Simulated assay, not measured.
Amino acid sequence: MPDEQTMRGVFAVPTTPFDADGEQSIKVLLTGIDRALEAGVGGFLCLGATGEALALSSEEREAQIRAVVEAVAGRAHVVVGCMAYSPAEMTALIAQAKSWGADAAMITPPFYGGLEPDAAVAALRAVMSASELPVMVYNNPHSTGTDLRPEHLAALQDTGAFWSVKETSGEASRIRELRDALDESVEVFAGADGIAFEGFTQGASGWVAASAWLLPRECQRLWELCRDGEWAAALDLWNGLSSPLAQIEGSSAFISLIKQTLSRRGAEQGPVRPPLPTASPAEVESVLSAIAGMEGEGAHA
């Protein structure tokens, strides 16, 4: 298994493919895992929003993670989304993830309650202090109603389980502020695909990327160029890559958009489970056109 110190870089976020009967298709999922591994990604973040985690049964969750862990076979890290309303439930989900072979867990502040940051930090502290796995804290104010600023996250560094932050507030300088506020032992991941390049310029040590499930080679290459300080080449790549990423990121039906785009490119995903919205044909065509333009430019570079 990779050393814990290598838990950085691109972490692809898998979709959950469904077959014609509406059942999850582990076979299609593992085809995507192999494709991303060939591109060199550092890990996978399963059972997040993109994976439609809240639409899956406990049995489906377990089947998915056990299959992914077996397929990855130590070549990358497997992180499992363990989001829930109560700290006790999050703790139980982390223990499950460990029993399935996961390397780390991702949690958010308890959602729906609209907690003030201090209350959210107290809830996260209870989970992280008891965690059996390294923890990624996902700052997603849009979904949770709570924005965990750098000073709030810094207060969790003594829990012993704080591996990383997935940052998606959209604040222009937030990743730099996090890097300044947190110890070097805590990784900072760009969590919004549309600001990955900007995040790398501010010191992000990784990228949790739904787009890396769709375009793993390009996303991994961007990370490598930024990691190695090849900023001019990275910017050239980003100027092409950012167009399809921005369209996906800006859509309320982004999960459907990723799945439909993958299906049109030969990896049939099936639909999203209701009540998630379905992307329009025009949205799908626009993303496919942007990808084709990017790939055409790359062929002539």
Rank of each mutant, 00 (worst) to 15 (best):
D183I: 02
E151G: 05
V127W: 03
S131Q: 02
P141M: 03
W163Y: 15
S169T: 13
I175K: 03
E171T: 08
H152M: 09
R174H: 12
T168L: 00
E171Y: 12
I175Q: 07
E167Y: 06
A161N: 14
D183P: 06
T168E: 05
R149F: 09
S143G: 13
A126H: 11
G170R: 04
T146L: 07
H142W: 11
H142L: 14
A126F: 09
D183R: 08
S164F: 08
A130S: 05
N140S: 14
I175V: 12
H142I: 12
S185A: 07
L133A: 04
A181S: 06
E132P: 02
P141V: 05
L178I: 07
V135H: 02
E151S: 12
S143C: 15
R149P: 00
E171R: 07
V186H: 02
V135A: 04
P141Q: 08
S143R: 14
S129E: 11
S143T: 14
F162M: 09
A130T: 00
S169V: 00
L178F: 11
E187V: 09
S173V: 08
L148D: 03
W163E: 13
L153K: 02
A181I: 10
T144E: 04
L133H: 03
S131I: 03
G145W: 08
V127R: 04
H142S: 12
L178K: 07
T168G: 10
E184P: 00
L148Y: 11
R149L: 14
S143I: 07
E177I: 03
L148V: 09
S131Y: 04
S143M: 15
E151T: 12
P150T: 10
V127T: 08
